[in-house]
Simulated scan of single mutants.
Amino acid sequence: MAQWLSELAVGRWFVTDGEPFEIVGIDADSEVVLVQHYDGTLEDFEFDTWVALAARPCAAPEDVSGAFDYDHDDDPQDERSSSSAGRWRDPLDFLDLRDRT
Rank of each mutant, 00 (worst) to 15 (best):
11 G>P: 02
12 R>V: 08
14 F>E: 01
15 V>Q: 14
17 D>T: 10
18 G>I: 09
18 G>E: 15
18 G>Y: 11
19 E>V: 10
21 F>P: 01
21 F>Y: 07
21 F>Q: 05
23 I>Q: 02
26 I>S: 01
26 I>E: 02
30 S>Q: 13
33 V>I: 10
34 L>F: 15
35 V>Q: 01
36 Q>A: 12
36 Q>P: 08
37 H>V: 08
38 Y>H: 10
38 Y>P: 07
38 Y>I: 08
39 D>L: 10
41 T>A: 09
43 E>A: 14
43 E>Y: 14
45 F>N: 06
45 F>C: 06
46 E>N: 06
46 E>L: 00
46 E>V: 00
48 D>K: 08
49 T>V: 07
49 T>S: 02
51 V>I: 12
51 V>C: 07
52 A>D: 05
55 A>Y: 01
56 R>I: 14
57 P>I: 02
57 P>A: 04
59 A>P: 13
59 A>M: 14
59 A>Q: 15
60 A>H: 09
62 E>Q: 05
62 E>G: 05
64 V>H: 08
65 S>H: 10
67 A>K: 12
67 A>P: 05
68 F>R: 12
69 D>A: 13
69 D>E: 15
72 H>Y: 15
73 D>A: 07
73 D>T: 01
74 D>W: 07
75 D>N: 04
77 Q>H: 13
77 Q>A: 15
77 Q>W: 15
79 E>N: 09
79 E>P: 13
80 R>H: 11
81 S>F: 05
81 S>G: 09
83 S>I: 13
85 A>V: 05
85 A>Q: 11
86 G>K: 03
88 W>R: 11
91 P>F: 03
92 L>V: 12
93 D>K: 05
93 D>L: 07
93 D>S: 08
